[in-house]
Amino acid sequence: MRTRSSSNLVGDSSSNPTTSNPRRRNRRRSKQPFSLLREVSRVDLVSKFINEFFPPSRTTNLRNEISNFQQKFDESFHEAWDRYKDLLRACPHHGFTELHQLDTFYNALNPTDQDSLNSAAGGNLLERSTRDVLTIIENKSKVCNSRNKSIVSQVKSSDVNSSSSSDIAKLTHAVN
C-alpha cells in the first residue's frame, strides 16, 4: 500500500516506470492558468496604480519635461545628470527606450559637455552601445561631482576663516 508521501518520491521503486503519475501531470497543467491569471491581475493592478497616481495629464506633462530637458546655463554636468534621472524616476512608466533617454540627455547638454563625452568615448558618443554610453555618462558624472566637492570644500574653508573674523568685527562694533 502506498502512502501519499511515498507516491511523490522521485526514486520510488514500487511505481512502474512506464506509467506516469496523473496527479503530477494535472498539477503541472493547473499551474499555467493560475500563473496567467496572476500575470493578468498584476497588469490590472499596475494599470490601476498608474491611473490613480499618474493621471494621463500628469503623465503627459512629465513625458514632455523629459523630452524637452535642457541643461541649465549655470548647471554642472553632474547636476544636469541628476536632475534628468530625477525626471525619469518621477515618471517610471514614461515608455522611452534607454537609447532614446540617453540621446535626449546628450542632445540637451552644452557643447562643452558633449565634447567631453565624445572625447571620453573616443569619438561620437552616440555611436557606442547603449551600455557603454550609460557607463561613460555615469563615470563622467562621478568624476565631475568629486572635483566639485573638493573645490567647494576648499572655498568654504577659506571663506569661513575670513567671514568669521569679519562677523566678529561687526559684532564687536555693534556691542560697542
Rank of each mutant, 00 (worst) to 15 (best):
R89F: 06
W81S: 09
D132M: 06
A108R: 01
H93L: 10
Q70H: 13
W81E: 12
F105W: 12
H94P: 09
N107F: 07
D74R: 15
Q71T: 06
T130L: 03
A121W: 04
E138C: 10
S76L: 03
R63K: 14
F73R: 13
E75N: 00
S76C: 05
Q71F: 06
F69P: 06
A121C: 03
L125I: 05
F96E: 03
R63N: 14
L102A: 01
D82V: 12
P111H: 06
T104E: 08
G122R: 03
F73C: 09
E52G: 08
K140W: 01
L88N: 10
F73V: 14
I50C: 05
R128Y: 00
A80N: 06
E127C: 00
R131I: 11
E75G: 07
R63G: 05
D113R: 14
T130M: 08
D113S: 13
I136Q: 00
T59F: 08
T112G: 13
L126Y: 04
T104Y: 00
Y84S: 10
D74P: 04
W81V: 11
S119I: 06
S57K: 13
L62G: 01
N124Y: 11
R131D: 02
L125K: 01
L102T: 01
F77K: 01
L125F: 07
Y106L: 02
L102C: 03
S141K: 08
V133M: 09
Y106P: 01
I137P: 02
T97Y: 03
F54K: 11
L134R: 13
D103W: 08
A120G: 00
S119R: 13
I136A: 03
S67N: 09
E138W: 08
E127L: 12
L99W: 07
R58Y: 10
L109R: 07
T60G: 09
T97G: 13
K142A: 15
I137A: 05
F54R: 02
Q70L: 12
L99R: 10
S119A: 08
K72N: 15
R58L: 15
D113A: 15
F105Y: 10
R89Y: 05
A90W: 04
N139E: 09
E138A: 07
D86V: 05
E75L: 05
A120I: 04
N118D: 07
H94R: 04
P56T: 14
T97K: 12
L117W: 06
K72I: 13
I66H: 02
A120M: 14
F105A: 04
D113Q: 12
F54L: 15
A121D: 04
L99Y: 08
S141V: 11
Q71L: 10
